[in-house]
């Protein structure tokens, strides 16, 4: 073909239909907001039970992860995600979906080499880089405390 990849890229951009930004943003706002409001409800529930704030927060996370796992298992979470997009990706329920779905998918390759190896195939980087960032912060915080 007698054309450069830059020229072709320009042709390609014209041919790709536009994403429905407004519709997607609405979906993300509504679903994401709803999940956070649900989180607030669960958090208040645990606080009312008399749990301390950090423990109530942890219990809330565990509950949301459990709900997400159930919805993923029943094949519903991905359907909500079609509408929710960022609203289902960003909350901790999205993290749970990213752990649960490969666990289900790759058990066909066995519990050790399938499920065990691939369970963090999507969410692994979140833990790796979250911890790395926190350790770097911890060291800086420690040095600043020495000064």
């Amino acid at each position: 073909m007698s054309l450069s990849s830059d020229e072709y890229k320009k042709m390609g951009e014209k041919a790709v239909p536009k994403t429905k930004s407004i519709r997607n943003l609405t979906g993300a706002f509504l679903i994401g907001g709803a999940i956070c409001a649900l989180g607030q409800f669960i958090l208040n529930f645990y606080l009312d039970l008399g749990l301390s704030t950090p423990f109530a927060g942890t219990a809330c996370s565990i509950t949301l992860v459990g709900i997400s796992a159930l919805l993923t298992g029943f094949g519903v979470y991905d359907k909500i995600a079609k509408f929710g997009g960022g609203g289902t990706l960003v909350p901790i329920t999205g993290f749970a979906n990213a752990v649960v779905s490969p666990a289900m998918e790759f058990k066909s390759e066995g519990f050790i080499l399938g499920l065990g190896v691939k369970i963090f195939t999507i969410a692994g980087p979140v833990i790796v880089y979250g911890i790395l960032a926190s350790v770097i912060y911890g060291i800086i915080y420690w040095i600043m405390g020495l000064l």
Binding site: T19, S21, N24, L25, G27, A28, F29, L30, I31, G32, G33, A34, I35, C36, A37, G39, Q40, F41, N44, G84, G85, G86, G87, L89, V90, P91
Partner: peptide, 22 residues
Amino acid sequence: MEYLKAFAVGGLICCIGQILID
């Protein structure tokens, strides 16, 4: 009010994610 704030702020943070997707 508490729920409204959670909804609005949570929703907006998710919108940042949506913009990154799109």
